[in-house]
Computed example of a mutant assay.
Amino acid sequence: MANIMVIGASRGLGRAFVEGLASDGDNIFAVSRTKPEGINVPPDAELHWIEADMAKPLKAAQKIAEAAPQKVDTLIYNLGVWEEYAFEDNYQFEQDDDASIIEMISINITSTILLLKHIMPKVLNADKPQVIITGSTSGLRQSGRPEVTFGASKHALTGIADALREGYRKRNLAVTCLQLGDLNTDDALDVAVSEAAKKGEGRLIPVHDVVAVVRTLLQLSPSSFVRELTMPAILDDRF
């Protein structure tokens, strides 16, 4: 039995983590701003919902830590916002709204650091403590993407993961940063992966594939971990 916490769990990849990682006997703690409806977990798994708005980093971090169980075996941090015209041909950095840039940094970086600070004592109570952070190929060097604030904030996650691992190396903390390419978040796990893989004609990754990778990470022995994993779509011409 494991206690798994997913930050950003209401839809898309986060929802897929909640539905796809739970095993019988597990407790899944789903964190989101609004309560998700119709999430399916195994009959003998228990779903707990924690309402928190990561746009208010300190309040959210404190609330999540208070609501979390005394032991969190795996923390999955899957949250990120991007510019209004990100990934579109008409994106121009100088046209980004100043207030939106500040909010993006607050959600993508500040909330991550504060949540980790407040929840870490409970993660370290686990026999096999594990943190998984979903980054982006946009945050990699020479990513080929022009979105400045999103790219910078996702690049920051790699630094957070490295420092966290170093700080708790002697506590056997496993920290993985997943650098993910463009995802097909329209097709949930109830859609066959063979069908989901057709969307985007090789340029979108089904959430099924990311769930499969994370499931493997959860099954590793305490003697190993994956430090970083880059996962682009098969026809992503940047890789």
Rank of each mutant, 00 (worst) to 15 (best):
N27V: 08
N172R: 14
T230Q: 11
L220E: 14
N108T: 11
R145A: 11
K122Y: 08
I109G: 00
A126M: 10
H155R: 07
A2I: 01
V148D: 01
S194Y: 04
R169A: 15
P222L: 09
I28F: 08
Q179I: 05
L218C: 03
P69Q: 11
D89F: 10
A68G: 07
K128A: 09
N172V: 00
L220A: 03
L178K: 01
A126Y: 06
A65S: 15
R33P: 05
L115W: 05
A30H: 04
A233V: 06
V148L: 15
F87M: 14
D26M: 00
G151M: 08
L157Y: 03
V210N: 00
V193Q: 09
R227V: 07
E195F: 03
T216K: 06
E66N: 10
V72P: 07
G167C: 04
I28W: 03
D96Y: 06
K35C: 13
T112N: 07
N40E: 12
V123F: 10
S23W: 10
K56C: 06
S223H: 13
D24F: 02
T158C: 07
L140C: 07
S111W: 07
L189C: 07
S136H: 11
D89E: 13
D182G: 03
S106P: 06
E88Q: 15
I102P: 04
D190Q: 06
P121C: 11
D237E: 12
L178E: 01
S10M: 02
E103W: 03
K170V: 07
G38H: 12
P36Y: 09
V123P: 04
Q130V: 01
D127T: 12
T216D: 12
D97N: 15
V207S: 10
G181K: 01
P42D: 09
V148A: 15
F29P: 05
H208L: 10
V123A: 02
Q92W: 05
A22H: 06
G200Y: 08
K154Q: 11
K199V: 09
V193A: 03
G139Y: 08
E84K: 15
L180W: 01
G167W: 09
L157W: 04
G14M: 05
G200H: 06
L157F: 07
R165D: 10
A86Q: 06
A65K: 02
T134D: 06
G139L: 07
G144M: 08
G80W: 03
V41S: 02
L204C: 02
S223P: 02
L178W: 02
D209Q: 15
L58M: 13
G200S: 09
N27H: 11
K198G: 00
I109L: 14
P222Y: 10
I101T: 07
C177T: 13
S136P: 12
T176E: 11
K56N: 14
Q70M: 09
S138M: 05
D236A: 13
Q130W: 06
E46N: 14
K117W: 12
S32G: 07
T176W: 04
L218M: 13
A61R: 01
D53C: 08
V214K: 01
R171M: 10
A174Q: 13
S100R: 06
A99R: 03
E37I: 04
I64F: 02
V18Q: 04
